[in-house]
Simulated assay, not measured.
Amino acid sequence: MNDHDRDDLLATAVRLRTEGRQEEARQRLLTLAAALPEDAEIAYQTAWAHDVLGLEAEAVPFYVRSLAGTGLSEEDRRGALLGLGSTYRVLGRYEKAVEVLRGGAEEFPGDGALRTFLAMALFNTGEHHEAMRLLLELLASGSTDPSVHEYRAAIEYYARDLHATV
């Protein structure tokens, strides 16, 4: 298969998914993934197609394959880390979720979604203090609520130590 055919087939499958024709997109992506098993972008899109349909367990090997390969854009790599970590969490594999999401948050420190999903996975593993710290930091740095902004310094202080007293 030449690059032009690959690009056209992939674009068609992605378009089908965005049009709500998820099963048709998934079938096309499975065919592409079988033909081009080393293609990280196709693996990522195939994982996403499974996730959208609630087929999380089937999505995992495609996420793993996409992250092991090369050629993902920065945005797709971020999406694959978020997708894999979130999928592990949904499947009850909380430690793996924390591992993947922590790595993603370190690689993309400005990504609030990765840190939010990491906080949820940390909650699931009983690491409540770190989960709360992450969420408070996100709230303090990203909220447009005027009253949150007014108390930003205090929220950031308590994010570092929830047991602190004045």
Rank of each mutant, 00 (worst) to 15 (best):
E75D: 15
R89P: 02
W48H: 14
L91C: 09
L72Q: 09
L81N: 01
Q22Y: 08
G83K: 00
V90G: 00
E58L: 11
R65L: 13
G54A: 06
E75Y: 11
L81S: 06
H50R: 06
E58Q: 13
Y44P: 00
V60S: 09
E38Y: 03
E19Y: 00
T87W: 04
R15C: 05
P37V: 11
T70F: 00
L82V: 04
L16N: 12
Y44V: 05
L84R: 09
E75F: 05
E19D: 15
L16C: 01
G79C: 01
G79I: 04
E74W: 08
G20C: 06
L36Y: 04
G85Y: 07
L81C: 12
L32Y: 00
Y63G: 15
A35P: 12
G20A: 01
E58N: 02
G20N: 11
R26H: 10
T87P: 01
T31V: 14
S66M: 01
A59W: 00
L16Q: 09
L81E: 11
L55H: 15
L29F: 03
A80V: 05
V64E: 15
A35K: 07
T31I: 08
F62G: 08
A40Y: 04
G69V: 03
L72W: 01
W48S: 08
D76I: 00
G20F: 04
E74F: 04
E23Y: 06
L32M: 02
A80E: 03
G79K: 14
T18L: 12
L29N: 07
A40N: 11
V52R: 15
L72E: 00
R21I: 13
R77S: 09
E38H: 11
P61T: 08
L53V: 03
T87S: 14
